[in-house]
């Protein structure tokens, strides 16, 4: 319904089809129906990224968390454990510095740093350009480490297979319902730093229960990147994703 004159007639055609819009005059001005998703531009670029990855059989994960949850340490340990059995590359997103990309490069994996400046999230456009310099190998695993932020990256599809939310036990176990959009968008929740459980009041079962309230299907995986506990299951999950990405695109 038109919100100016209240008329309930006229087709609200999708803007991509033609110009047969719901036009009518209000003096010098007219109303046009747009009906376009605000994120349509990002989503189109994300689909382009997804096609690029599918053609090359690359399994891509978008790692999201608060700052300091241990994303980079988890990635370094993951790359070390994969131990060149298959190629791994990393896109690092931070507002400033190359510190994280340098830590990844030290493991021997390919890495490219994106500095978003004032930006609070990576978007599909930045990631598409990162592919150009990174040139991830066919059949590889690509980790996209998003800017540490549990809010904004939830809305931006980068073309990944899954978002993985990382929650460390030094944070509150109720984070999944404090930041429901992110835990709703993620396929997996890695609970990191479980070696610290004896020293903190974090209740793992409660954290999983909160997460399932916003996302009944979320996979929860407690790990310690530091001691290696739980890493085997994490690596198996990555391996299975990689296998499926390659089956789809041999």
């Amino acid at each position: 319904m038109c919100t100016v004159c209240g008329c309930g007639t006229g087709p609200h055609d999708h803007h991509d089809h033609d110009h047969d819009h719901h036009h009518h005059d209000h003096g010098d001005s007219r109303l046009i129906a747009i009906e376009q998703n605000i994120l349509a531009h990002n989503d189109r670029l994300a689909e382009g990224n997804r096609a690029y990855l599918a053609e090359r059989g690359i399994f891509a994960l978008n790692l999201v968390s608060s700052p300091g949850s241990g994303k980079t340490t988890l990635l370094c340990r993951t790359i070390e454990a994969i131990n060149n059995r298959y190629p791994v590359s990393v896109i690092e997103g931070d507002q400033q510095t190359r510190h994280d990309a340098d830590r990844i490069l030290a493991t021997g994996a390919k890495a490219v740093q994106i500095n978003t400046g004032k930006g609070c999230h990576l978007d599909a456009h930045m990631v598409g350009h990162a592919f150009e310099s990174l040139e991830p190998a066919n059949g590889s695993v690509l980790f996209i480490e998003n800017v540490g932020n549990l809010v904004c990256p939830a809305a931006f599809d980068l073309g990944e297979a899954y978002k993985v939310a990382i929650l460390s036990v030094t944070e509150g176990e109720d984070k999944p319902i404090k930041y429901p959009d992110m835990f709703h968008a993620a396929a997996m929740m890695v609970i990191n730093k479980i070696d610290l459980l004896p020293y903190v009041d974090f209740d793992v079962e409660a954290a999983i229960a909160w997460a399932r309230k916003v996302n009944p299907d979320i996979v929860a995986l407690p790990v310690s990147a530091r001691t290696g506990e739980g890493m085997e299951e994490w690596l198996a999950w990555i391996n299975e994703g990689r296998r499926r990405a390659r089956v789809v695109s041999p």
């Binding site: 100016v4 719901h22 046009i32 129906a33 747009i34 605000i38």
Partner: peptide
């Protein structure tokens, strides 16, 4: 939803 619905233009 996060959509642009309509615009009044001149």
């Amino acid at each position: 939803e996060m959509r642009i619905k309509e615009m009044e233009v001149a």
